[in-house]
């Protein structure tokens, strides 16, 4: 409750300005992009016009939509419909679900190969990872990892996939040529999200219960740095890092801190936390607009997304979406 209160004041501060001078803000988002937000409890996707910063449409999808990802060509949005045990393929032009992919049980998060042909999905209930051939719509490989596999990422060159397992607290390194686990790195407790940096030399992993982000050197698979967070007025164990996003220029890494209701801004060269941006309650995942001028965050408890001005590192606006927004993806 107390955590939410400042967010409200922040919003009310920004809203009137926005309404009064919407045109002034227009240059901030140079073009109109489309943001998709999965609402876990509503079984819907909210579609947002990023120029107007309003929800233009809400579309029914499968049950408990969580992880969402755009295909590299942006024509498809893949949606983990967790309770339906499927990954849905949403056609971004037709704005409807056109097919379902086999995903194994309870898909939550996934990653796509750089060529868009393969999807790597973690199957939380069966301690495994499935590899799906998107075109053939079949599972082409499955392998065992630790207990409760969660985060997935594929390296920029497509040669490595990584999976995090929550109860095992490890990153499992997978050779995509042979689909075998080649190494494991211990990280903080309950690792959620793994993200490669642009050149694929570092892997950033958030640990929700450990309260840290671990940076790993990809070549040696050794931990380079554990980054801790301290948000004023928030007890340490409420700081629970989940979503990670990096700017393409390597200037900033943003870390969503869950029930701490803030996004941390990290300098990836010094690994120093430069500041914290107040957003909505239980901030979960994030996505940049294609021009990287704005960052959208999903705030599960407050049921909204916060739009962050990346240049100023300040919140711009909160947009009400459905219940328990989980994932967000933005296309040109």
């Amino acid at each position: 409750m107390q955590d939410g209160a400042p967010a409200m004041t922040q919003r009310t501060k920004f809203l009137p300005i926005l309404v009064a001078s919407a045109t002034l803000w227009a240059p901030l988002s140079a073009r109109a992009y489309t943001a998709y937000v999965s609402n876990e409890k509503d079984n819907t996707i909210s579609i947002i016009d990023t120029e107007k910063m309003v929800v233009t449409e809400t579309i029914k999808v499968g049950q408990q939509p969580r992880g969402i990802l755009l295909s590299p060509d942006k024509t498809k949005l893949y949606i983990c419909a967790s309770s339906d045990d499927t990954i849905q393929v949403f056609d971004t032009a037709l704005r409807k679900v056109v097919q379902n992919l086999p995903s194994g049980e309870d898909p939550e998060t996934f990653a796509i190969s750089p060529d868009g042909k393969l999807i790597y999905v973690s199957n939380e209930n069966s301690n495994g990872v499935s590899v799906i051939d998107v075109e053939k719509r079949t599972v082409v490989a499955q392998f065992d990892v630790g207990v409760e596999p969660e985060g997935m990422a594929v390296s920029p060159d497509g040669k490595l996939a990584v999976n995090t397992s929550e109860t095992t607290s490890m990153v499992h390194w997978i050779d995509t040529a042979t689909n075998t686990v080649i190494d494991n790195t211990l990280v903080g407790q309950r690792p959620r999200v793994a993200v490669f940096n642009a050149d694929g030399t570092k892997l950033w992993v958030s640990s929700e219960i450990g309260g840290t982000v671990t940076v790993i050197d990809v070549a040696t698979r050794k931990v380079v740095r554990n980054i801790g967070f301290a948000v004023k007025g928030v007890s340490k164990d409420r700081v629970q890092p989940v979503g990670i996003r990096m700017t393409g220029d390597g200037k900033w890494v943003f870390v969503a801190l869950g029930p701490a209701n803030h996004v941390a801004v990290v300098d990836p060269r010094s690994f120093e936390v430069k500041g914290y941006i107040l957003v909505g309650q239980r901030v979960w995942q994030m996505a940049f607009t294609p021009d990287e001028k704005q960052l959208y965050t999903t705030n599960g408890i407050s049921g909204d997304v916060t739009v962050i001005d990346v240049a100023r590192l300040t919140p711009l606006k909160s947009i009400k979406v459905g219940r328990y927004p989980w994932g967000v993806a933005i296309r040109p």
Partner: peptide, 10 residues
Amino acid sequence: EDNNATGRFT
């Protein structure tokens, strides 16, 4: 069982 699932890697 959970410990041993991790133990496979350690």
